[in-house]
Simulated scan of single mutants.
Amino acid sequence: MSENITLLIAAARDAAQNAYAPYSGYHVGAALRLSDGSIITGANFENASYGMTLCAETVAIANANSAGRLDQIRDIAIVGGPAGQVGIHKVTPCGRCRQIIKEVADITAHDIPVHCAHDGGCDTHLLSELLPHAFGPANLK
């Protein structure tokens, strides 16, 4: 695994420590690498109404958007698990997050690699593998 991916995973692991997960106890951190090598992170943020919960990937992408850097996202690392066991098992983005990442992929014209870290290492999937036959902005034309 490259040093860049290792640093991205470490940033996602650190972000998971900031998760607000009082209902599930499941902490997830996400880290985005931008085109200049900088990293933006996010952690999941639960809500008592469940449906309003924000996933770590969505928070990180919203942070990049707020910084005016949405078009600079190049890859994503995700780490998650029960509190105190973050990173033991592989976590992949939920369907909603895959769709949000698809929008970013279309904006960046880049098939975004998603690095899913776990105790055994890291499995990398291209967004197109995680969400084949995706619906995106081009379908609205």
Rank of each mutant, 00 (worst) to 15 (best):
E57A: 12
P137S: 14
E57D: 01
C94E: 01
P22R: 06
D75T: 03
V91K: 04
P93V: 09
N4W: 09
I76C: 06
L127V: 06
G51A: 14
N4A: 15
A19V: 02
A21D: 07
P113L: 11
N63E: 04
D123P: 03
S66A: 13
T124Q: 11
A12S: 05
V86I: 08
Y20P: 00
D71G: 07
S38L: 11
L131W: 09
L8G: 01
I73C: 04
A60L: 09
Y20R: 11
D75F: 06
I88H: 11
L70S: 10
Y23A: 03
A62N: 09
N44H: 09
L130E: 07
L127Y: 08
Y50E: 12
I9T: 10
A62M: 09
E46S: 00
E103V: 09
A31S: 10
G51C: 10
T6D: 08
V79E: 02
A105H: 04
N4S: 15
N18E: 10
P137A: 15
A56T: 05
S24I: 01
Y26P: 00
A64V: 00
I107P: 03
V86K: 02
L7P: 00
H89T: 08
L8K: 04
F135N: 11
L8F: 07
A56G: 01
C97K: 01
S35C: 02
A83W: 03
N47F: 06
L127K: 04
G68M: 03
D36I: 02
G81A: 07
N4H: 12
L54A: 13
D106H: 15
S35I: 00
L32E: 03
A30G: 05
G68K: 02
V59Y: 02
V28Q: 07
A16C: 03
K141Q: 11
I88L: 14
A60G: 01
L8Y: 08
H110V: 05
F135E: 12
I107R: 11
